[in-house]
Computed example of a mutant assay.
Amino acid sequence: MPEDRDAPTTALELVGQHRVELRRDPALDTLELIGRDGKVVLAIEVRETGPVLRFEGAGLTLKTAGELVLDAKKLTLRSEEALSLTTGGDLDLVAAGDLRSTARVQTITAELGDVRLEANDDVRIDGERVLVNC
């Protein structure tokens, strides 16, 4: 967040001691929703290249009754403690390029049905010990 507090600012007080501030600057206009504790909750930065949304706080929930699409040239999901993908239906992971999975330990479990492994070329299993039916 730019720290240019000398830029012209327009403020609007909201219910619950929240406020909205609009800061105008030649290179960047910023609209901020500020919580009662004085911390920025939501900021919209308008730059020449387009708007940037910034959410700050203890949590963020996006909820929709319909479809949610994230469409980007590049997408990064980063989590400090854990990341969970859950669906009540099928899950497809599709990559036009390579798919790599790296972890300290990996577990694949089929709760009902088979585990299938198919390859157009060789299937390679490399381990200190390869245990089968143990």
Score class of each variant (00 low, 15 high):
residue 71 D to Y: 02
residue 93 L to T: 08
residue 126 D to M: 04
residue 57 G to L: 02
residue 39 K to T: 14
residue 56 E to R: 14
residue 37 D to Q: 13
residue 37 D to I: 15
residue 129 R to P: 07
residue 26 P to E: 03
residue 75 L to Q: 11
residue 59 G to R: 12
residue 65 A to L: 12
residue 15 V to H: 05
residue 128 E to Y: 14
residue 76 T to S: 12
residue 6 D to Q: 12
residue 70 L to D: 05
residue 88 G to N: 15
residue 30 T to R: 01
residue 59 G to S: 12
residue 96 A to I: 15
residue 5 R to Q: 09
residue 3 E to S: 15
residue 110 A to M: 05
residue 94 V to Y: 12
residue 96 A to K: 12
residue 39 K to V: 14
residue 64 T to L: 11
residue 9 T to I: 09
residue 72 A to Y: 09
residue 91 L to K: 03
residue 9 T to R: 12
residue 50 G to R: 14
residue 36 R to V: 09
residue 13 E to V: 03
residue 75 L to M: 13
residue 106 Q to V: 15
residue 31 L to H: 06
residue 58 A to L: 09
residue 66 G to W: 07
residue 2 P to V: 06
residue 100 R to L: 11
residue 134 C to E: 08
residue 90 D to N: 05
residue 4 D to N: 09
residue 134 C to G: 11
residue 113 G to H: 01
residue 45 E to L: 11
residue 45 E to P: 10
residue 26 P to Q: 01
residue 52 V to R: 15
residue 42 L to N: 11
residue 125 I to K: 11
residue 61 T to A: 09
residue 81 E to R: 03
residue 65 A to C: 07
residue 10 T to G: 01
residue 80 E to L: 08
residue 1 M to C: 06
residue 47 R to K: 14
residue 46 V to R: 10
residue 73 K to A: 03
residue 7 A to E: 05
residue 128 E to M: 09
residue 19 R to C: 01
residue 91 L to R: 02
residue 44 I to G: 04
residue 66 G to P: 07
residue 107 T to H: 13
residue 128 E to S: 15
residue 133 N to C: 12
residue 12 L to A: 04
residue 53 L to F: 14
residue 118 E to I: 04
residue 11 A to Q: 12
residue 10 T to K: 07
residue 49 T to W: 13
residue 117 L to D: 14
residue 23 R to F: 01
residue 3 E to M: 07
residue 1 M to G: 15
residue 60 L to I: 10
residue 103 A to T: 14
residue 76 T to E: 09
residue 125 I to T: 15
residue 80 E to F: 03
residue 89 G to Q: 00
